[in-house]
Every structure is written in C-alpha cells, then in structure tokens.
Computed example of a mutant assay.
Amino acid sequence: MMTIAEVSKKFNLSQDTLRYYERVGLIPRVNRQKNGIRSYTEEDCRWVEFVKCMRSIGLPVEVLIKYVGLYQQGDETIEARKELLIEQRKQLISRMEEMENVLGRMDKKIARYELTAVKQ
C-alpha cells in the first residue's frame, strides 16, 4: 500500500492531479484508511501508470473515462474496450504521420537557413 504522496513521487504527478484522476473517473476509486487517507494498491498504481501513459500520447480525458467505465462493467465489455483502443491507435498513427510531415518541413527550412548562412 502507498500513500498519495508516495504515488505522486513515484509517477511524478502532483497530488492534485491524482485526486483529479480519481474524481473524474480516470482511475477507479482508491480505498481509504480509517482516517480517510488514500491507500493505493499495486492495481491502483497500474491504473495511474496507464492513464499517465495514455495522456502523454494525447488520449482525451473523455476517452479514458469511457474506457475505465467499460472496464468496471466487467468482461462483457472486453470487445468494446478493444475497439476503443483500436480507434485511438488509428488516431495516434494519423497524428504521428502529421508530425513526421511537419518535421520534414522543419528540416527543409533549417537546411535552407544553413545554406544561406554558408553563402554569407
């Protein structure tokens, strides 16, 4: 079991962010000790890690909330969860292709500036 401070440090997320994740349903509800302090299990930490990873690639909060909701409904939602992830994967690939195009344009622009600098 870990406290919110320990989880915050482990995943480099603020305690406010962890509370937000729980409040809006990005992670399942975290159990609390008798004194009200959150007590994160290994599974809770896996959820935090999953959400942090998915947010880092730009998955919308709403999509993750839907995914968590489906997960909490049980195994009958496995296909729906898979489809949700497949759709998000397609969108990620599209964004990566767009970024590669922009990177190529930037490289060309930088190369032009380097040629200009050499000529001067």
Rank of each mutant, 00 (worst) to 15 (best):
E42C: 00
E76C: 05
A80V: 05
I65Q: 15
I110W: 01
R89C: 04
N31H: 12
K90N: 12
G69H: 14
R23N: 15
V63P: 04
Y20G: 01
N35D: 13
D75T: 12
R112Y: 09
L85Q: 06
K10L: 15
D107H: 07
V48E: 06
E49V: 01
Q91C: 00
D75W: 01
R95F: 04
R19M: 03
I86A: 08
K108V: 00
I110T: 02
Y20R: 08
L26R: 10
Y21P: 08
E22C: 02
V7F: 04
P60M: 13
M96G: 01
Q91Y: 03
D107T: 08
A80N: 06
C45M: 14
Y21V: 14
K9C: 07
K82D: 05
Q33I: 00
R105H: 04
E87Y: 07
K10S: 12
T3M: 05
S94T: 12
E114S: 08
W47V: 07
R46G: 00
L26H: 11
K34C: 00
L64W: 08
G25S: 09
C53F: 14
V24L: 08
S8R: 02
N35S: 07
R95A: 10
E43I: 04
V102H: 03
A5P: 01
Y71S: 15
M106N: 04
I65K: 15
K90R: 10
E83M: 13
E87A: 12
L92D: 00
F11A: 12
R112A: 08
V24H: 10
S8L: 03
R81N: 13
M1C: 07
M96H: 06
C53S: 15
I4R: 09
S14I: 05
L115E: 13
V24P: 09
E100V: 11
N35K: 03
R105D: 09
F50E: 10
E76M: 06
K10E: 15
V118L: 08
E114W: 06
L13N: 06
E6I: 02
N12P: 03
P28R: 11
D75V: 11
R55C: 06
L13R: 04
V48N: 05
T41L: 02
L84E: 07
R38D: 03
D44E: 05
K119D: 08
G25Q: 12
Q72E: 15
V30A: 02
L64A: 09
Q33M: 14
L59G: 03
R89H: 12
E100N: 13
L70H: 04
E76Y: 07
A117K: 09
I78V: 14
A111G: 02
K82M: 11
R112K: 10
V48A: 05
V118F: 11
D16H: 12
M54S: 14
Q33V: 00
T3D: 10
R105W: 04
K10N: 14
V118G: 00
S56N: 11
K66P: 01
P60W: 05
I93Q: 13
G58Y: 15
K52T: 14
V118P: 00
Y67K: 06
N35E: 12
P28Y: 07
